[in-house]
């Protein structure tokens, strides 16, 4: 049996979704605008997209680029961020570079990258990589900087070399912060994935969306928005599960010291 509070927590998100769809439905019926289909029309278009082989291939191609861009970014960014956090020289070198790149919308770099690398997978994956890297570097950096000096000293006294301390103390100690960065990165990966496909139309989920827009198939446009949104929710929920398991030791539910000296 679920407690009433737990039940409320379960039902609340469902209610929010249903409420949103209801407002959409009513607004659409009231406005009677061709480019604003009703929620029911949009939802009806979803099976058509997911049933279409070509559309599925497009969506999977998008997801693959996203996974590669995200994966490579994480592998590259965590060590860089950790090194920056523990070495002033490394931080002094990379900080200005990152400060310049950070506020630039990564999609704005796309036309230039397209000139160099074409409109194919490499360009889009690179843009995703750029989008994901910065939050992961930033959070790894902050996490590594915050590691208690005495914890590192304790490791040094046990005979851990500087590299061992980085991998076996700084990395796990900074993991909660790193994973926060990865979570932001994951959402950014999805966003840059769609924008990259908007700029370089060739394949992908964004391609379906914007083609439908060009052809005036507004129910498909809205159906794709729902699909992309749902992918985002699922990926985030999946990631949150993995994260919660990895950093169980730092979760606040444990933050109740036992009364024993």
């Amino acid at each position: 049996m679920m407690s009433p509070a737990a039940l409320t927590r379960r039902i609340a998100p469902v209610l929010a979704c249903v409420g949103l769809l209801a407002v959409w439905q009513v607004a659409s019926l009231a406005l009677k605008n061709d480019s604003f289909p009703t929620a029911i029309e949009a939802i009806r278009a979803i099976p058509d997209i997911l049933g279409d082989k070509e559309a599925l291939i497009n969506i999977l191609a998008s997801l693959r680029r996203m996974a590669i861009g995200f994966g490579v970014a994480v592998i590259f960014s965590i060590p860089l961020g950790l090194l920056m956090g523990r070495s002033r020289a490394v931080a002094a070198f990379f900080n200005p570079l990152l400060m310049i790149i950070y506020p630039v919308p990564k999609a704005a770099l796309m036309p230039i990258i397209m000139l160099w690398l074409g409109v194919g997978d490499i360009t889009k994956t690179l843009v995703i990589f750029l989008g994901v890297s910065l939050p992961v570097i930033y959070h790894s950096f902050e996490g590594a900087k915050a590691v208690e000096e005495k914890m590192l000293w304790s490791g040094a006294a046990m005979g851990l070399s500087p590299l061992q301390r980085l991998v076996r103390i700084v990395l796990p100690a900074a993991l909660p912060e790193i994973l926060t960065g990865c979570r932001t990165g994951l959402v950014l990966a999805l966003i840059t994935m769609i924008t990259s496909e908007m700029i370089a139309r060739q394949s992908g989920a964004g391609n379906i969306l914007f083609n439908a827009l060009d052809m005036g198939q507004y129910d498909t446009v809205f159906a794709m928005i729902i699909i992309v949104g749902a992918m985002g929710i699922c990926l985030d929920a999946l990631f949150e599960r993995v994260r919660a398991r990895l950093v169980r030791w730092s979760e606040p539910q444990f933050d109740i010291p036992l009364s024993f000296s």
Binding site: E148, K150, M151, W153, S154, A157, I169, P172, A173, L175, V247, W249, S250
Partner: peptide, 13 residues
């Protein structure tokens, strides 16, 4: 030489 610090400095993970 084994240190014991006021801050404990345990490995929380």
């Amino acid at each position: 030489r084994g240190p014991v610090f006021q801050e404990f400095a345990l490995f929380p993970w």
